[in-house]
Nucleic acid binder design. Sequence first.
DNA 1: CAAACCCTTACGGGAATCCGTAGGTTTTAA
DNA 2: TTAAAACCTACGGATTCCCGTAAGGGTTTG
Lengths: 222, 222
Amino acid sequence: MFKKILVVEDFDSIGLGISAVVQNKIGAGEIVTSQYCDEAYLKIKRAKQDGAPFDLLITDLSFEKDYREAKLKGGKELVEKLREQGISIPIVVYSIEDRRAVINELMEIQKIEAYVLKGRNGLKNLEQALLAIANGDTFLSPELKNNVEKKNLFELEDYDISLLSNLAKGYSQSEIARDFKSQGMSPSSLSSIEKRINRLKEEFEAKNAIQLVATAKDLGLI
Amino acid sequence: MFKKILVVEDFDSIGLGISAVVQNKIGAGEIVTSQYCDEAYLKIKRAKQDGAPFDLLITDLSFEKDYREAKLKGGKELVEKLREQGISIPIVVYSIEDRRAVINELMEIQKIEAYVLKGRNGLKNLEQALLAIANGDTFLSPELKNNVEKKNLFELEDYDISLLSNLAKGYSQSEIARDFKSQGMSPSSLSSIEKRINRLKEEFEAKNAIQLVATAKDLGLI
DNA sequence: CAAACCCTTACGGGAATCCGTAGGTTTTAA
DNA sequence: TTAAAACCTACGGATTCCCGTAAGGGTTTG
């Protein structure tokens, strides 16, 4: 079905699990793995130049930092880079990330072929995703489809996460405002940051910023 | 080396990866997997009753909730339950959890045989851990060794823990003072509470109370 | 016994936050 | 295209937090 597949995943346990299922259930010809996005990008480019391109990419989103310097920090950057360079390889994202904002951007803007949620039945869904792609369809994990109705519930953007982790690092609101301004992020005014923190406090029923950060930690958001 | 191994891990991709490496590198006789702690406990008990007990348990710590009702919420509860019941099976915990408070308790109180950190080289470490156990040694992932030594730097009193968790619950310092007064705790004045929080901030190198609570969460203190 | 020390409590000024109001811009929808 | 809605920004007052100073009580030490 697929002749040459690249699997990009930092944890070796998961990478091995993916390889095993792709090998046994799908029967791919060649499976190459990488634990780094930068390396993966180079492999894809090189394979294309050599006239033996990959015909499928399966990638994680989040990658742990280690001693290596990473230009592409995660799967999202890898996908963006590939699309930016006009490399139209079919892409499956296999991640634990379940926020609609992130997933929608990948599916609708970056036009990835499938988004599979890591979880108890992640590999089963991955298998289905590969079958769907082989048929020219796209695939979205069923756990996420049910949530489509709740789309307009409260969802955290990257902005909120950034805000929360800056608070957790001990920066004052005005320091954060300066930081956001210098990075060209918007909104960046102290006032907007106050507003946003207020919204988050309401959302998480927190009396103050301390409790807000504490519950964000509990929920694993930061 | 091991004849019968139970692998408890909710994500199928990781469970498969573990199974593969245990099978191929260690050459275990029988590998049983479970995605639920309750089920794992029953399997261990049943195997023992049947006269064919497991001689190794490899378990994750955190398990996602799903439709099933779970009595044992995670690997920590599973280990505690086993030890409580006097079942002395060798245990390897394989988790992403890197807080030393949690790990120390498992190693020193629950006397698990190995703690392996999930990560890029998790399986390599897992392999080493199994070899160590077969030699009668214990094993701790190398990434963690540096942290565990620093454990007795600063001893927190119950008072400090109480203070930190009250902060994390969103109470203001004056509210905490009132609360402590009504409970007859000492010191209870607003001023003393400020002082104590200052001491904690210095200790944990936190710029403000938000960062203080955040790092306390990270360390697993609250 | 007194001096030194530690701890609790108190007070005050400056900084940061919380919270409401309000004006200007962009986005959405009729 | 225009009105409504949503958003970003700014400002000011109330509250809380942060930090230094200092008084009072208890224990330890010379």
